[in-house]
Nucleic acid binder design. Structure first.
Lengths: 183, 183
DNA sequence: TTAATTTTTTGACATTTATCAAAGAATGAT
DNA sequence: ATCATTCTTTGATAAATGTCAAAAAATTAA
């Protein structure tokens, strides 16, 4: 599985149209793009750097999503439903981040319905990636899930700390540490 | 989480337009709507009855998806990518099933780009449901996952056998049997 | 550079869940 | 109704993973 990169799916002229509507900002490591409890109104595209979505379960911090260059991140539990989000979206490195409000995106789409198709392609891809991740949990042991991640997104292994990778894969950091050193 | 029902998202006139292009067929229990190894070209909408997507991992049959009345089912690993599918799509009851080829749907959308928006809404919903399911695996024990399913889709518990429910929830049937009888 | 902080590893032990084998219950076919 | 088949439960045991506590290593800040 190769991960969502907008530029494989969407023609350049549309990308630039969307980018015209987007703000590009620089933020330091640990900056929160979105904080839990708030309604999330923006979609973020990582231009440079790394972000994660996470939340707390029984006091433990669990990483739900990781996005690096060219990938999209937002609080999926809020952006569409407009409900208060349980998620935080945090930068793991100093980053350059494009952002567009969902309202602006919808406005752009209503003006240019010919672009809907590409949003559909992106959503189809996101959906398929989600389905693959569900399969991982249905079929694979902790060790296999880790090995798959190493294969599909090796850059993450280098850049994200062990605790975040572990919770992203649905295991404790002790378990991941032991998997890593196993023969 | 309430499950995907087209008619909450899509205006009736579009539903009927799509339905004009759809075939409605009756099939007996155990009929395969789609068989693994083939490229899946159709999307199915369950009018009456019950279907599941499943596949084999080390000889074991694992249910990946369950769809009842008003819900959509297809081989998600194939319909978009046009790769050979690992999945079977099987009916668990005698059923009435609408079907449309993905090519026809795309054709309809190119003729009526104003409908793209609704496809987007459906995909957004499907994506969010997928994200919820991933969360289940990240956070919840076998027992909690079962209790959540009982709460969100009680009809399934009645209609789907224990083995299929168990694999859908990522556990063995013995574990689910023990969870059920636990105090 | 040193100290403080954060991250990773390790060990001992507990818990959850899986595996295997078999019995019991339910369902469907004749 | 009876037999065959499929589904569910049970028990014994094993394997995977989690928990807690602490040490070691790496990173960051002063």
């Amino acid at each position: 599985m190769d991960f969502l990169k907008l530029d494989n799916l969407v023609p350049l002229d549309l990308i630039s149209k969307i980018f015209e509507r987007m703000e590009l900002n620089n933020y330091a490591k640990n900056h929160l793009l979105h904080e839990r409890g708030a309604i999330c109104e923006h979609i973020y595209l990582i231009q440079k750097g790394l972000a994660r979505t996470f939340f707390y379960k029984d006091g433990k911090d669990i990483t739900v999503h990781l996005a690096s260059e060219g990938e999209i991140i937002t609080a999926v539990d809020s952006i569409i439903s407009l409900k208060k989000s349980r998620y935080n979206v945090e930068l793991l490195e100093d980053s350059e981040v494009f952002s567009i409000s969902y309202a602006d995106l919808q406005h752009l789409l209503s003006q240019h319905p010919e672009y809907e198709k590409y949003v559909r392609l992106v959503l189809e891809r996101m959906y398929t990636e989600g389905a693959d991740r569900i399969e991982e949990f249905l079929f694979f042991s902790a060790k296999e899930r880790y090995n798959n991640l190493v294969k599909t997104r090796p850059q993450l292994i280098q850049r994200v700390n062990l605790g975040h990778i572990a919770s992203y894969l649905g295991m404790t950091q002790e378990t991941l540490s032991r998997i890593r050193k196993a023969p």
